[in-house]
Design a protein around this nucleic acid. Structure first.
Lengths: 171, 171
DNA sequence: CGCAATTTGTACGTATGTATT
DNA sequence: TAATACATACGTACAAATTGC
C-alpha cells in the first residue's frame, strides 16, 4: 500500500498520505483502532513524521482520536452525518490546509447581554457579557462560509489570552 | 533570550516557545517581518522544528503570515480588536492546542434555501441549498462557545470532500 | 534570461518523554 | 516492572518560491 511513486511530486507527500489514510478510515469500523503509527508508516511507505502530519488533518476534524499510550481510534460519527464534517476544525483552516487561498472579510464583533436561551446554554448570569463574532470566509476568492461564534466574554480570556477589545463606543 | 531552563519540563517546549514568541510578536510592528526561522530558533535556544511548531499556533490564528521565499510577517490587526482573535482558527482547535479538554455537543445540521441576504452574501442562485451547522463547544466541561457555520452545499464538497449527508427525512 | 542567495516547506531518522496496560 | 503507543525534540537534507544580480 505505497502512497505514490516518488517521482510524482505534484502534491506534498503528507497530503498524498492523507488521501490514502482517508480510504483506510473509510474502511475502518467506527470505534475501532488503527494500526500503530510505526506499522502504519511502514505500510504506507512514509516516515512516521509524515504520517503524523497526515493524521493531523483528521484529528483536527475530529475524525480520529489519539490517546497517548493507547492508540488511535476512529470516531463514532454523529447521527446526522455519515462521515465527519468540520466539527472541530474550522472551515478556514481546513480549506487552507488543502491549499486554497483563504481570506476573511466583514469581521464584526458585538458585545451583548445574553438572551434567556443563551443564558441557559452558557449557564452564566444575566449581567455577564456575550461576544458575537461573525465573519465571511472566502476560499479562492469566492464567499464560501458565514461563521458566527458566540462566547461569554469571560471565557474569551481563558481560551485566547491575547484578546483585547477596544472601546465599543469608538467604532 | 533562552526559553527556559531545560530541567523544567512541566510544559512542552514548543508551548514555552510559543509564549516567548508571543512577547516578540507583541513588540513587533504589524506588517513588519520577523527574523528568519534559523536565527529565531538560535535566539530562542530551540530547534527550528520546535520553533515552527510554536509558530503554528499563531499562524492558525492569523496573527502571522508565512511566505515561502520571503519570510514571516506580523498581521495588521483588524480594526475592531487590538490583537487577533480566532479569526482563522476555531475556538475548539485553539482550546485543544492549549491543552484543554474539548467536547462538542448539540450538533445540528439543517438544510435550507438562502434568504435574500444570504443569497447576496454567497452570490448563489435561490434554488441552491445552504447548510447551517451549529454546535456547542465545551472546554473542560463548561459550555464555552456556540458556533454557527452557514455555507452553500456545493461548496461543502470542495472544502470537505468526505462529507456525506444522510437523507434529511430519516431524522 | 539564467544563476545564486535567502527563506519557508517538506521529509527523514533518531532519541527520549509520558501515559497506559 | 516491562512492553506498547503516542508526544515531543533535535538535526539534517533537500524542495520550492522569491529576490537580486
Amino acid at each position: 500500500m505505497q502512497v505514490s511513486s516518488p517521482t510524482l511530486t505534484r502534491q506534498p507527500l503528507y497530503q498524498q498520505t492523507a488521501a490514502a489514510l482517508s480510504e483506510i478510515l473509510a474502511k475502518t469500523e467506527p470505534g475501532s483502532f488503527l494500526p500503530s503509527e510505526p506499522s502504519l508508516a511502514q505500510e504506507l511507505g512514509v516516515s512516521r513524521s509524515t504520517l503524523r502530519e497526515a493524521m493531523r488533518t483528521f484529528e483536527n476534524q475530529g475524525l480520529i482520536v489519539r490517546r497517548r499510550g493507547i492508540g488511535t481510534y476512529v470516531t463514532t460519527p454523529p447521527k446526522a452525518i455519515e462521515t465527519g464534517l468540520e466539527v472541530l476544525e474550522s472551515v478556514a483552516s481546513m480549506a487552507k490546509r488543502m491549499g486554497f487561498e483563504v481570506e476573511i472579510s466583514d469581521l464584526l464583533i458585538k458585545e451583548s447581554k445574553p438572551s434567556a436561551e443563551e443564558g441557559s446554554i452558557f449557564e452564566i448570569q444575566p449581567d455577564h457579557s456575550l461576544l458575537t463574532i461573525s465573519r465571511i470566509v472566502h476560499v479562492d476568492g469566492i464567499p464560501s462560509a458565514y461563521l458566527v461564534d458566540i462566547l461569554p466574554k469571560c471565557i474569551c480570556r481563558k481560551i485566547s489570552p491575547r484578546i483585547r477589545l477596544r472601546d465599543p463606543s469608538s467604532t
